[in-house]
């Protein structure tokens, strides 16, 4: 039950609940000899009941004043969902539209489209734990894995501020994986990488990322927001001399992800609609059963205490009007 009170010292008032044991609260009526009155089980029952009532009223009032409440509790449940880390690209090019120009009234920037659709995505994923990491030249830790959807929304909304610097995807992935550091739990672990470009990852980082992806059993979704005219993930080089990570970072990043050994899916989105489809797809795929902890917020019980006390008080008052004096 985990009951608690706001001001424990008020509980000393519970001593007052003992008062009805010493005084029945009735008007005394004189009788010549008490032994003359016959034993009556019903009378004893009513008398005891009224005393208990009075004790309960006093206890109820004191508990209400002390601010009785049930503390925040967590309940383990099994539902459908996942542990999701959103890894968002904050490089400057995200502020351009899908056509590669500064956004005007008609089309929105890639960052705006991503923000709008991710907001909807988070809204739909009620039982998930979601964390947010961002990267540009350096990785940014934004929000730990949390069930607080308002917090995740606030982090996504904050990407409305102008973007920064360049794309350093390796460090960003490292940061995203570090969010899973807590001991292993059921349910799938997912990194959703939303970016509009790629960069070569150096050899050391590649090794580390391979290890971490394997250790943590993380599944990766890469939503590549492709700008018109720029090289895509699945493009084949026209000239074999261009077939290297420096010239075609997207293709090589994709190759690296494919070789990770963990489940990986790439989406190339060339418009907000394609982005929407990719997100809907992930939404459908990631519904494995998982244990999750549901938080039940603190419940105030003082109103209940006061109501019970009032009800019993009315009984006492009613009994008072039944008293007969001869």
């Amino acid at each position: 039950m985990n009951l608690a009170v706001n001001s424990p010292w008020v509980l000393s008032g519970l001593l007052l609940a003992l008062l009805p044991l010493f005084n029945n609260g009735m008007r005394p009526s004189p009788a010549p000899w008490l032994a003359l009155i016959p034993d009556d089980a019903l009378s004893v029952f009513i008398a005891c009941g009224l005393r208990l009532c009075a004790m309960a009223v006093i206890a109820g009032l004191v508990l209400g004043m002390a601010g009785l409440h049930r503390t925040e509790q967590s309940r383990e449940r099994i539902g459908h969902g996942a542990h999701i880390v959103l890894l968002l690209d904050r490089s400057s090019s995200m502020d351009n539209s899908f056509a590669g120009s500064a956004p005007n009234g008609a089309d929105e920037s890639k960052a705006t489209a991503a923000r709008r659709l991710l907001t909807d995505f988070v809204k739909q994923r009620q039982s998930d734990l979601i964390g947010v990491a961002e990267y540009s030249t350096a990785p940014l830790f934004v929000m730990p894995l949390t069930e607080n959807k308002a917090a995740v929304q606030a982090a996504i909304a904050a990407t409305a501020t102008p973007a920064l610097g360049f794309t350093h995807v390796g460090k960003g992935l490292g940061m995203a994986l570090s969010l899973f550091e807590q001991p292993s739990v059921t349910g799938s672990r997912i990194v959703v990488l939303v970016s509009d470009g790629a960069a070569a990852i150096d050899h050391d980082s590649e090794q580390k990322l391979r290890l971490w992806f394997k250790q943590q059993q993380v599944r990766l979704y890469w939503i590549f927001l492709r700008t018109a005219g720029s090289p895509g993930i699945f493009d084949q080089p026209e000239d074999s001399r261009d077939d290297n990570a420096g010239a075609m970072p997207e293709r090589y990043l994709h190759k690296f992800f494919l070789g990770l050994g963990s489940s990986y899916q790439a989406y190339e989105a060339e418009s907000p609609d394609a982005l929407k489809r990719a997100i809907a797809d992930i939404n459908q795929l990631e519904n494995l059963p998982m244990h999750y902890v549901e938080r039940i917020p603190k419940q105030d019980l003082s109103t209940l205490c006061y109501s019970v006390a009032t009800l019993l008080l009315l009984i006492l008052l009613g009994a008072k009007f039944c008293e007969i004096r001869r």
Binding site: V132, L140, A150, A151, A154, A157, A158, P162, L164
Partner: peptide, 18 residues
């Protein structure tokens, strides 16, 4: 310049996150 990590959150409900 500066960047915003998250917009203002209510402190009691999002204490752990902040």
């Amino acid at each position: 310049r500066s960047t915003l990590l998250f917009e203002p959150l209510e402190v009691c409900s999002a204490y752990t996150e902040i």
